[in-house]
Design a binder for these strands. Sequence first.
DNA 1: CTGTTAGCGCCTTCAG
DNA 2: CTGAAGGCGCTAACAG
Lengths: 327, 327
Amino acid sequence: MATIKDVAKLAGVAISTVSYALNDSTRISQATKDKVLEAAKQLNYRKNGFASDLKRTKTNTIALILSDLAGPFYSELTKGVQEVSMTNGYDLIACSSQGGPQSTAVKFLKEKRVDAAIILAHNISDDIILQSARKGFPIILLDRQLENDFVVQVEVDNYQGGYDATEHLIQHDHKEIAFISGPQNAHDSEMRFNGFKAALRDHDLIHHTKWLMQGDFTREGGYRATKILIAQGNLPSGVFYANDEMAVGGLQAFRENKINVPGDVSIIGFDDIQLAEFTTPPLTTIKQPKYEAGALAMHLILQQLSGQIVNSYYKLSTELIVRKSVK
Amino acid sequence: MATIKDVAKLAGVAISTVSYALNDSTRISQATKDKVLEAAKQLNYRKNGFASDLKRTKTNTIALILSDLAGPFYSELTKGVQEVSMTNGYDLIACSSQGGPQSTAVKFLKEKRVDAAIILAHNISDDIILQSARKGFPIILLDRQLENDFVVQVEVDNYQGGYDATEHLIQHDHKEIAFISGPQNAHDSEMRFNGFKAALRDHDLIHHTKWLMQGDFTREGGYRATKILIAQGNLPSGVFYANDEMAVGGLQAFRENKINVPGDVSIIGFDDIQLAEFTTPPLTTIKQPKYEAGALAMHLILQQLSGQIVNSYYKLSTELIVRKSVK
DNA sequence: CTGTTAGCGCCTTCAG
DNA sequence: CTGAAGGCGCTAACAG
């Protein structure tokens, strides 16, 4: 691999001249530039990104940390992040936190490999984040609350969303409503549950614990929880799934038991994933402003990187998407 | 930001001792290690990843280059890549080639920022790849053919897949079959088309140019192409969409025109995306072994990185998934 | 077991 | 306009 030194030698100039020429400084004559460029091409010279980052002590790249690169859920969010970073000339890399403390994500967070990070990865512990938070290294948290001077949170209003979903069910005359939760400790699931309970309370309805099922945000989890619900006999008239994936699983469970949705039971989800409009029946759900969340996160990073102070908490609102799964 | 130097000073040892201690070398006594670790913690020391990469001249990370990080298509493939890289202790980052020559992907490819790359990004030109290909930098190409000593190709058998799809239609008594292609120059679309033509020929059927529509691999593209097909009057009895996304768009177009699938027209797609089993009717399609492709790509990289020679071309076979869109 | 030292490849003052 | 030189933070001989 040719280095800047080789180019200098071939072009017959000093190393610094090559550096200036390559970075298109005005202090170099066109003739010299041409000579240098020619030599560089001839040697198939590629600059070493690290060496230059090391010198400039900044990388111009932002990390988007996801719990699983293969997860289909993030595409809208990623788009928001991607577009803003691109138009501002920042590089973006995505990495996964699969593998816990050994994961690529943690490595990038801890070692000084990027200028900032956006985190949407429940499998990274608060601890790690706290350890990595430091002056001059903006971290945006999309999926949890965490008090620290150097992290800012962008949250979807899960509480209100949960409230709205539940109220929608109530307004359609459902009085007995089950809730299928996400995994334990999932902050967003909990907030949705709180909204659920509040809506029930405000309408003088009570919540039976037998209609609270633990899921895990996966399709299988929703399927399983629903099967249990069915096995219990005495179905509720409405079910609020803490996310759409689980609702899709639930739909399948109901279908297998010849229970008609929304004829026999109404269901509502959360997220508005792409699939939601294709299920049978199409899923009524709460839409998260994912693109906006991504774009906002990226904007906040840019502001911080340019030295501005930003608030430490932002809340985005949800929207009810009415389709056909509630009667 | 504290450096190794600061740690050394605080711990009262030499710089190299700190380095050894931090990398857990056996040559350092436990007592010294403890002292160093303590000092490091106190200063909230984080090693600078670049500096160390620069020194070792390797990064231990692989880039997965996608044309769009927000694309939903890659999840299976990514999973394959991710799992293999993780179990082998390599870091994986994904980056997008959106933005062409200025994109993050191109930067990573050209500058020496990763040890190897897997490319599935039609919007990166052959040129760039050729320029980046060099000894000691394995590149795996998933989406095109390109002759070079330093790149290896992993391809799905698009020809055979196209052949199988078409033959399936023919075996169900369809004689007039339309083909909706991908974007111009898309290598995979072209191969599928070749398979299509071959199947027709082998069954003594002829292919009318009026039943060849140009799409672009997007849902909208499929929708538009189908609308045109319908507007032409005189529908074919079968349509082969070069990918599932377009088939989903086509389904919508047919529905809007009250044309029943598969009653009035049979359709088949390619890819077997997640959505395919949820459409109405569920889509018959050709499944690509995406997970396998990803895992294979990663394995090939590992082999090359450890100095082994691998073949320069691998072909993976497809599978017909029969659902309900062909009668 | 620990310290000294010479770079990795690049950028950037500071003199010519 | 060009060249010499110092150093970014870290690793790995090599000496003690």
